[in-house]
Simulated scan of single mutants.
Amino acid sequence: MQFKKTNRFWIFSLILLLSACTSLPDKPVPSRSFFYVGGSYVGSPGKEIMQGQMYVEKLQPQQVKQPYPLVLIHGAAQTATNWMMTPDGRKGWAEHFLELGYVVYMVDQPARGRSAWHPEVNGKLRMYTAPQIEQLFTAAATLGNWPQAKLHTQWPGSGRRGDATFDAFYATQVESLLSDVETQTLSQAAGAALLDKIGPAILLTHSQSGPLGWVIAESRPQKIKGIVSIEPSGPPFHNNAPGNPKARAWGVADIPLTYEPKVTAPEQIKTQVQTSPDSQGLIGCTLQAEPPRQLVNFRQFPILITVSESSYHAPYDHCTAAYLKQAGAPIDFIRLPERGIRGNGHMVMLEKNNLEIADFLHQWMVSKIKP
């Protein structure tokens, strides 16, 4: 059992290799490769280093059945291991989407994981503690303090330290850049370089990488065929925390977005707060004052925002969707329980019904994203 837990993805990779070795020369076979995109040299003459480069892993199916590749971008404290397998050894989304016929690209965000971090260039890091992960991700039913937390049933295990599945998951956690501005700036440049290399694609983002999808689309709107944003960082303009601390000064991002009429400073975006929430258990949204400015680079591709039943995002992700819709983006906002998918927390790609959720996302992409 322990062998299965720690080696499932590598067994999968070995199968890919053996398939390539034993297949006829003219028969397409699955393959796995990697490369880096982006990056620039910085430093004084004779002491230059490269910074901002992004690790990308490519999985190519035996037969490509989907018209566009899928780019999987992990959230805070995570790396591409999120997509490879679950911490209790089940099939991950990368393998599943590969079987559905997608070319799959997985990244480690710049200055994260296999993408080099330089403290003197990229700045300070942050790290989630084990108690924070327990409360927010894995044991919300007993530790969460938001209205929907008690509905969490899909984490595979107790979600507490000492449980093998929790320990396997926490072992994958890594430091993230403290600065959201630095993170988005680096990822926008690297994401644009990736799309320049691979061509039109679908972005699938999660949590902290939600704004990365928006800023990459801002940079290369003509190469985005769709964005699937799973519980993106939000809500607009502030964090849902005591005192509503300011965040995402440009609405859904911390770095500039193109509005019409033109905005040269975020203070020019006039806002208003809902007088009352849409329903019990939700926050009142901060939206644009009428008439709203339009996000002109978000008009030509479909967007899906999803939120699970029990996540700490459940009280506020509708605000991000409402803001984007108000700004002219063609967006669908779907709560998973509306599709009969219940009991999930924030880490949907790792939970017991992870493949059911992947299939739901696949069906949305097939129905909304046309060749």
Rank of each mutant, 00 (worst) to 15 (best):
P292Y: 07
A249V: 10
K246G: 13
R248L: 14
S233P: 00
L195F: 10
Q280C: 00
D167R: 09
I255G: 05
T172R: 10
P221F: 09
P232I: 04
P235N: 06
C285M: 10
D167E: 12
I227L: 06
D196N: 15
P221A: 12
S209W: 04
D196V: 07
A190I: 01
V174G: 09
T183P: 00
Q222V: 09
A289F: 11
A289R: 14
T264Q: 07
F237V: 13
P235S: 07
A168Y: 09
A217S: 08
L195A: 06
Q188D: 05
W214T: 05
L212T: 02
L287P: 13
Q294E: 12
K223G: 08
Q208V: 00
Q188A: 09
A192K: 09
S279P: 10
E260D: 14
Q280H: 05
L177G: 01
D180H: 05
Q288C: 09
A164W: 07
L203D: 00
E290A: 14
A253P: 06
G243L: 11
A193F: 03
A201I: 13
V174L: 13
A201Y: 07
N240D: 15
P221I: 11
K270R: 15
G213D: 00
V252K: 01
S233T: 05
R220H: 07
T275A: 13
